[in-house]
Structure formats: structure tokens, C-alpha cells
């Protein structure tokens, strides 16, 4: 299995697409840094104006930790989009390139091939999230320094500088699990449709629609929320509450792991029974 995973990693990291997603992430973070460097004070003074009526706000408001926290909001759409473009391609590219016949006529079984791709997908997601974390944190801290972070959840919460890093890394770990689950869904659609673009569109469409439904709180959907993956993916925000509700987070972790498992099993069954006649 290790050699199969190595082969998949070679294919992945020889593809231009992989580096494009890393590059786009770096550009995204740079834009956030530049934007806040230019307009950050004005933006936060506007958001905190009701506090300014009663308090002097002393200290380094627009600091590297705050910017890193804001960068995490790319976890809503930008990061899932960039991830699934590559992860769906890991599976459907073989059909698109015609190399599926080449792959399946070698000595490895279908199950082994799929597992190797699945492991490669997980490793890519981990790599990607590390790039996100480092590109969000390092430049902004170097330019803006560190400080407390005002977070707009249930009103306003001030997260202490000393606890920020551990929250940040826990968020990244949780988000990695979330992105693996999301990529597993993309994997299932990629095998089903045998096409990267279709799989990406379907999976992103689902994420956007479900997130919107939750935002508008239509009565008929409110009881479905715990069953929706978008609800659980969004739980990374809980790491920035003053008292982190770990039971709720663990529930979401179990859900996301379960979702990954189910997507894998469904894909395994489909792939093993599939006729490759093209």
C-alpha cells in the first residue's frame, strides 16, 4: 500500500493544479493582509463603535492574530473550493485521461487503488491546511505583531493573546477533519460522474445551498440542521468562544468521521462493481 500511495503522491505533486491551489491560497492571504493593513483600523472602529461610547479601547487592535482569525473565514467557501478541485481530480482524472484502464490492468486490485488514492487525498488535505495555517499566521504576525482578538460570536468576545495559538491550531485540526469529510463527498461524486468539473460543481453547490438554508433559518429546515454536513463544518467557530464547548465539537468530529467512512464505503462498492467500458 505504501508504494501505491507513493505513486499517487508523485502524480499529485507533479500536477500543476496542485501548486496552483497553494499559490492561490498564498495570494488570498496576502490580499487579506494588505486589505487590513490599509483599512483595518477603520473597519474595526466601525464594528466596535458602540463600545467606543463607553470605553477607551487600548492596545494593538489590528494585530497578526486578529488577521489570522479573519483569514480562517476563508474556510466557508474559498478553502473548500480549492481543496475539492484537486481532491476530486485525484479520482476522476483517471477516467478523463483514459489512464483508468492502465491503472486497473496492473497487479493492484481496485480496492487497493482506491485506498491509495483516498490516503493520498487525506495527505494532500493535511498539507494544504498546513499551508493555510502558516500563510495566515506567519506573515501577519511578522507585520502586525500579536495581541488579543475581538471575535463577533454571540455579541463580542475578546480572546486572550496567550490562548490564541492553541485555539488556532485546534481549529486547523478540526477543519482538516472537516475538509477530509468534504473531500470524501467529492470523491464519491467524482467516481460516480467520472468527471472532475461535475463533481466539483455538485459538491460546492450543496455546500453553498445548505449554508444559505441554515442562514435564513426557514422553520422547516431548522430540525434538519444537525444532519447537514455544512452545520458541522461550521463548528470551527466554537474554538473562539470564551468557554469552548468541547462536547458539541466532539459530536461534530464523530459526525464528520462517520461521513468520511460512509462516503468511502459507498465509493468502494460503486468502484468495485463498475464496468470500465470507455
Amino acid at each position: 500500500m505504501i508504494r501505491l500511495v507513493q505513486i499517487e503522491l508523485i502524480k499529485l505533486f507533479r500536477s500543476t493544479r496542485t501548486y496552483l491551489t497553494f499559490g492561490i491560497t498564498l495570494v488570498l492571504m496576502l490580499i487579506i493582509d494588505l486589505g487590513l493593513y490599509s483599512d483595518g483600523d477603520e473597519l474595526f472602529n466601525y464594528l466596535l463603535q458602540s463600545i467606543n461610547d463607553y470605553f477607551y479601547l487600548e492596545g494593538n487592535l489590528v494585530n497578526g492574530y486578529l488577521i489570522s482569525y479573519l483569514a480562517l473565514n476563508t474556510l466557508w467557501v474559498h478553502i473548500p473550493t480549492l481543496i475539492v478541485i484537486v481532491t476530486a481530480h485525484i479520482f476522476s482524472s483517471e477516467f478523463e485521461q483514459g489512464t483508468i484502464r492502465l491503472l486497473l490492468t496492473q497487479s493492484a486490485s481496485r480496492g487497493e487503488c482506491l485506498m491509495a488514492k483516498f490516503i493520498c487525498m487525506i495527505l494532500y488535505v493535511i498539507c494544504f491546511m498546513i499551508v493555510v495555517a502558516l500563510s495566515a499566521l506567519i506573515p501577519s504576525v511578522m507585520i502586525f505583531g500579536t495581541g488579543d482578538v475581538p471575535v463577533f460570536i454571540d455579541g463580542i468576545q475578546f480572546i486572550q493573546e496567550s490562548s490564541f495559538l492553541s485555539r488556532f491550531w485546534k481549529t486547523l485540526m478540526f477543519s482538516t477533519i472537516a475538509m477530509v469529510a468534504f473531500s470524501s463527498l467529492a470523491m464519491a461524486f467524482a467516481i460516480w460522474f467520472r468527471n472532475t468539473l461535475t463533481a466539483v460543481l455538485v459538491v460546492l453547490g450543496l455546500l453553498i445551498v445548505l449554508t444559505l438554508l441554515q442562514t435564513f433559518v426557514f422553520g422547516i429546515f431548522s430540525s434538519w440542521q444537525p444532519f447537514l454536513f455544512s452545520y458541522h463544518i461550521a463548528k470551527w467557530q466554537l474554538f473562539f468562544m470564551s468557554d469552548i464547548p468541547m462536547p458539541s465539537i466532539w459530536n461534530s468530529v464523530y459526525y464528520l468521521i462517520g461521513m468520511t467512512f460512509i462516503c468511502y464505503v459507498v465509493t468502494y462498492i460503486k468502484f468495485n462493481k463498475m464496468n470500465i467500458s470507455e
Binding site: 494593538n60 455579541g155 463580542i156
Partner: peptide
């Protein structure tokens, strides 16, 4: 609607001037 941890700051009050505050992180000074 606001959760802020305890803060320790050093303040210099001077007549007719805004208090001069020194402290780690963000502080809300009434």
C-alpha cells in the same frame, strides 16, 4: 453581549488629559 477576560493595566491619570494606559493585549478602559 460581551465576554472579556480580566485585564491588568497601568494607568497614568493627569488632570484634563486622556488616561495613559499600558498593558498587554486589548483593554477596555471605562
Amino acid at each position: 453581549g460581551m465576554q472579556i477576560p480580566q485585564k491588568v493595566i497601568t494607568v497614568n491619570f493627569e488632570e484634563g488629559k486622556k488616561p495613559k494606559v499600558k498593558g498587554k493585549g486589548l483593554a477596555l478602559v471605562p
